[in-house]
Design a protein around this nucleic acid. Sequence first.
DNA 1: TAATATATATGCAAAATGAATATAGGAAGG
DNA 2: CCTTCCTATATTCATTTTGCATATATATTA
Lengths: 118, 118
Amino acid sequence: MRRGRGGFGLGFGKGWWLMAYILRVLRDGPVHGYEILERLVEDGLAWGSPGSAGGLYRQLRVMEQMGLVTSTWDVTGGGPAKRVYSITPYGMEYLYEVVNDMKALKREIDGFIDAFER
Amino acid sequence: MRRGRGGFGLGFGKGWWLMAYILRVLRDGPVHGYEILERLVEDGLAWGSPGSAGGLYRQLRVMEQMGLVTSTWDVTGGGPAKRVYSITPYGMEYLYEVVNDMKALKREIDGFIDAFER
DNA sequence: TAATATATATGCAAAATGAATATAGGAAGG
DNA sequence: CCTTCCTATATTCATTTTGCATATATATTA
């Protein structure tokens, strides 16, 4: 996600949010991609729209590359095999960092709005 | 900036912030690009680092294309000519919208943190 | 006259994004 | 059996965004 460089010091972009969401879900236990997709839809986050599923799986693979999550195949049960993701210790650390970044972002927004309303 | 599509419904990305910053500055009167750059540096927003100036001018041109700002050349005074930007009525509208989006973003962050801490 | 500060702009590679499409196993119904 | 649907993951391609180096040009100062 290329954090800590230039700009406002916060790693924005849609991927950042999706990643935060995924990490938060995985913190409560291993889940496979399709289920994350369903939760996104439930939560009204438009990532569930047709065509956007690819983006989720893509993000999951990026996160595995980054060492935030690991995956194993679950071939039990009916239907196609599921790739089940688990959060790593680094992923947990990262999640805490992301939450801190969110709090920092809130402060930046407050600063902006103060300057705007002044 | 392609807002109102997919994702979390908010148009994130660094450009979004830079645009907000520019609009807020221009609301208080016409300013040329280089001065905006200086203010960014003063405010500790790393857009002043070498090489990043191009991004600011690029953003200004995009915003002019979008009808958020207009520009005229100021050839009075010493040094190279300055392209002075002014905010348009549409730009003002847009600024208010951006502030609302920021408030919405804050609420989304609060929701995320609530779910995280629960 | 060489260096410096001011001021804007272009070019290019890499990364992120949107959205369509591909692949494939199993269940359900006629 | 065969077609259709649901589950599940993955690939592809075009476009947009981003980072950063570099180019251009005027005036000031040493």
